[in-house]
Nucleic acid binder design. Structure first.
Length: 542
RNA sequence: GCGCUCGUAGCUCAGUUGGAUAGAGCAACAGCCUUCUAAGCUGUGGGUCGAACGUUCGAGUCGUUUCGAGCGCGCCA
């Protein structure tokens, strides 16, 4: 049990003795920012004095008199009524034993038996990934890592839209490139894909099939679509793999269509009277739930809109037994949230069954000019280009470090220039330093009790290490990888400070050294665990 | 017009769910390597938290209004 939990219990008991029953989860124990305010503090006296019609400082004193705990050194009342706790050193250093015994699992929450499906990226197979996808890939992957570590059972999923308008444009564009290679003039419509990456794919087709696909037949058009999807999707998968992003399940829209689930869903919605026909198109009554208007699901020409297979897909996902679904989407899809939630509610699910994590748009600037990220025009900076230039660790850290809700202007010139000053190296360097120290002192023993850790810097590090678990829980609840980065930076900073200020390995003072090595080993383990959550490597040497 | 998301240092962003003196990186300036990795450390300058009211012991954080930015409001996906 952590010191924070122990303090919570002490405060909880004191409050009950004072006649106040407070839910333990509502008791806030804070890490004191200023050491003059002790190791931890609580505001309970301020919070609850008024309801009891008491003076906050007097109520605080009343509570302090009721505290029973042998791990507390002393307690002070400060300011308007804060209660500050000063803990005994050995209770702070006891965290090291826990870290050593759990190692890679230190910080891991207990399994909570909740199954969650995280769907992210799901880029259409019509071209290379761009920086918007990069950000979503990082956020989705990190949220999955964090939820898993926090105790959830996580499934990562990618939904492949391999039907509909967009892939037809892909087929057209690919065919146009193929014909271009055969000497015909390039013929691309406004909605087709102008990116030059299709030329490579067209060349591969030409090599294999020569000019046998020239005829404008249904079979040939279908061929270009299928070939294009396969080629584009395998590129996407490869790029994501290189970016350390993998999925447990890839679902295809074409499979949904083949499965008969669409007809099944339509029959269900009709029976429940959630659909109607207007001017030849079929609409879903989403406005009866959370949406501001009804949405078409079948066009007047009889084709499905993207929405209908998407509904079936979500019914399918949640039908697989997840406690809830998370869709990680670009912020330009926010209009989609209430639409899909409404559809889920028609099936009797709670609006909480689907949670949409919006990732704000990335605006890319190069040489002071904004570059629009459209696959259609083919002008976007691709994910692959960025990774090649800057590296996986830097890019992952860069995007994980910024909360997904913040609008982000990405200056490409600066990103390239600063790749050597990226904060990720600060953290990795701290890890490498710890490794170096441990490697230089292999012959020395490590004192798990950490009983000689008495310096302010050492106490401060111990408290940071102890806070990791609550950081995990908070990052998981808030779906916030940025909180992990903040923790990483804080810990790395303390390690660097400590390293600069104190000689860790002192062979003339083995007692203190063995305690310090324990602290360093604790730092190494925790830093590595934290970096792993955001998918960044923890090198032993730099 | 309506809706969603934002507005914090020159730039890019944090801010422990309403706490004590608003922080970091980058950029600028001044120092620190005969000693465990200088991708580091120390110090300086830099702020009306867009603005105004309100809620209370206490507001960058919550509410209302207002100004500004981005995105969305297809029988596109």
């Amino acid at each position: 049990m952590s010191n924070v939990d122990l303090l919570k219990e002490v405060v909880h008991k004191a409050l009950s003795k004072a006649g106040l029953e407070v839910e333990p989860s509502l008791i806030v124990i804070e890490n004191s920012k200023d050491k003059a305010h002790g190791d931890y503090s609580t505001n309970v006296a301020l919070k609850y004095a008024k309801g009891l019609n008491k003076n906050p400082r007097e109520f605080a004193q009343e509570l302090v008199n009721l505290f029973e705990a042998d791990f507390i050194e002393k307690v002070e009342i400060a300011g308007p009524g804060f209660i500050n706790f000063f803990l005994k050193n050995e209770s702070l250093s006891s965290i090291l034993g826990e870290i050593f015994s759990k190692e890679g699992n230190y910080g891991r929450g207990e399994a909570n038996n909740k199954k969650v499906n995280v769907e992210f990226v799901s880029a259409n197979p019509t071209g290379d990934l761009h920086l918007g996808h990069t950000r979503i890939a990082v956020i989705g992957d990190c949220i999955s890592n964090i939820l898993d570590f926090a105790g959830y059972k996580v499934t990562r999923e990618y939904y492949l839209n391999d039907c509909g308008n967009q892939v037809e444009h892909l087929g057209n564009s690919l065919r146009a490139r193929y014909l271009e290679l055969l000497g015909e003039p390039l013929c691309l419509g406004d909605d087709d894909y102008h990116g030059e990456d299709l030329i490579e794919i067209a060349k591969a087709i030409l090599d294999q099939y020569k000019d046998t696909l020239k005829e404008d037949t249904k079979e040939n058009r279908e061929f270009f679509i299928r070939y294009g999807i396969d080629a584009e999707f395998s590129k996407i998968k490869k790029d994501l793999e290189a970016f350390r992003v993998g999925f447990d399940i890839y679902s295809k829209e074409s499979d949904i269509r083949k499965s008969g689930k669409i007809e099944e869903t339509l029959a269900f919605l009709k029976e429940k009277n959630f659909i109607y026909v207007n001017e030849g198109a079929t609409f879903l009554k989403t406005s009866e739930f959370l949406d501001d208007k009804d949405r078409p699901i079948i066009k007047a020409d009889g084709k499905y809109t993207y929405f209908l297979p998407d509904i079936c897909y979500h019914y399918d996902k949640i039908g697989r037994g997840y406690d809830f679904l998370i869709d990680v989407l670009g912020a330009d899809h926010h209009g989609y949230i209430n639409r899909m939630k409404s559809a889920l509610m028609m099936k009797g699910y709670s609006d909480k069954a689907l949670e949409v994590e919006l990732v704000q748009i990335v605006r890319v600037y190069k040489d002071g000019v904004e570059i629009k990220m459209s696959k259609r025009t083919g002008k976007a900076i691709t994910h692959r280009e960025l990774i090649e230039e800057v590296g996986v660790d830097s890019v992952r850290y860069f995007f994980a470090d910024r909360s997904q809700s913040s609008h982000l202007d990405f200056n490409l010139n600066l990103a390239l220039e600063r790749s050597s000053t990226n904060p990720v190296f600060y953290a990795q360097y701290a890890h490498a330093r710890c490794c170096s120290l441990l490697s230089l002192s292999k012959d020395l023993s490590i004192d798990v009790s950490g009983k000689n850790l008495k310096e302010d810097d050492e106490i401060s590090i111990l408290k940071t290490l102890a806070s990791f678990k609550s950081i995990i829980m908070s990052a998981a609840e808030n779906r916030s990888p940025a909180k992990i980065c903040l923790f990483i930076h804080t810990l790395a900073e303390k390690i660097h400070n400590y390293y600069a200020k104190h000689k860790i390995i002192d062979r003339d003072n083995i007692e203190v050294t063995s305690s310090r090595l324990a602290l360093i080993k604790g730092c190494k383990i925790v830093l590595e665990n934290a970096l792993k959550l955001i998918g960044v490597s923890a090198p032993e040497k730099m």
